[in-house]
Computed example of a mutant assay.
Amino acid sequence: MIMAEEITGGCQCGAVRYRVETELDNPHLCHCRMCQKAAGNYFMPLAGAAREAVMVTRGDPGWFHSSDIVRRGFCRDCGTPLFFDPVDSGHMLVTLGSLDDPSRYKPVSEDSVESRVPFVAEWTGVRQKVSENDFTGEELKAIRDSNHQHPDHDTDDWPPA
């Protein structure tokens, strides 16, 4: 596919850069608690492409398995979240804010709206998706049972034994 404009992005400090060699699909805002924590924000804007179309062109991102079925790529130097990678999928997502031109992709849906914080308004004109409608019960259970993120409260020890 020939694109009019190259799709590139990277982290805040420039240590990690990437290129996507096809148009991104399903630009959306994810409100799930894992994305909130990974972004340090109320939601994470994401869009995806076939895994082989997403290429790191500079540096080596760090990876954190937020669950056994998803890992998240970030810059080890500045902490910028860059990738959402379902490990058993041929699809990989990039964070829209890390694109060189984030205005290129307007979100078409809000996902995991059951976790949207109450003072963030619904985006009008986009689909409102609930996790239970987008994931199978088995996928939701796999995420819940293998959640590797810190709980939303202080703990004496981490990680748990």
Rank of each mutant, 00 (worst) to 15 (best):
T8S: 09
A47K: 09
E21F: 13
V87Y: 01
R127C: 10
V20T: 05
D154C: 07
C30P: 03
D134M: 15
M1Y: 07
L99T: 01
R76D: 06
K37L: 13
G137D: 11
V126N: 08
G48R: 04
R33L: 10
V87M: 00
D134H: 08
E52Q: 13
G40L: 05
L82K: 02
R71E: 06
E110A: 14
K141W: 09
C13Y: 09
T80V: 10
R72I: 04
P61Q: 09
T8I: 04
R58E: 11
R127G: 10
E139C: 03
D154M: 06
D25W: 04
M34L: 14
P151Y: 10
I143H: 03
D145I: 02
L93P: 00
S89D: 07
R127N: 15
S109T: 11
S109G: 07
H150V: 09
G125V: 13
V20K: 04
S109V: 11
G48V: 02
S66V: 09
H153Q: 11
D157H: 12
F43V: 04
D157C: 04
I143Q: 02
P61N: 08
V120H: 09
M55E: 10
R33P: 00
L93D: 12
L99R: 06
I7N: 04
K37F: 02
G73N: 05
K106M: 12
S112G: 11
M55D: 02
T136W: 05
A161P: 12
W123Q: 15
D100C: 01
A50Q: 10
N26G: 05
G97P: 00
V130P: 06
M92W: 00
L140D: 08
A38M: 10
G73C: 04
P118W: 14
P45C: 01
P61H: 10
H28L: 03
V117N: 07
R127F: 13
T8A: 11
T95K: 00
Q12M: 14
G125I: 13
I2C: 03
V126H: 13
W63E: 01
T57D: 06
D154Y: 11
V70H: 04
D77Y: 07
E23P: 01
L140Q: 12
V56A: 01
V56H: 02
Q128P: 12
S131Q: 14
D154P: 13
M92F: 00
H65K: 09
V126C: 08
G90A: 09
R127K: 15
L93R: 07
E122A: 15
D85C: 01
E132T: 15
C75M: 11
Q149G: 02
Q12T: 09
C75A: 12
M44V: 08
V54P: 05
A53N: 08
D100M: 02
D156F: 05
D154A: 14
P107N: 12
S115W: 14
R144D: 08
E6W: 00
Q149V: 11
C78P: 05
T155Y: 01
R116H: 13
H148C: 08
N133Y: 12
C13F: 12
P151I: 08
V56N: 00
A161K: 12
A39K: 03
G137C: 01
C35F: 07
F84H: 06
D145M: 05
L99H: 03
E5D: 13
G97Q: 03
T57R: 10
D157M: 05
F84E: 06
P81M: 08
I143A: 03
S109R: 12
G62W: 07
Y42K: 10
L82Y: 06
A50C: 02
H91K: 04
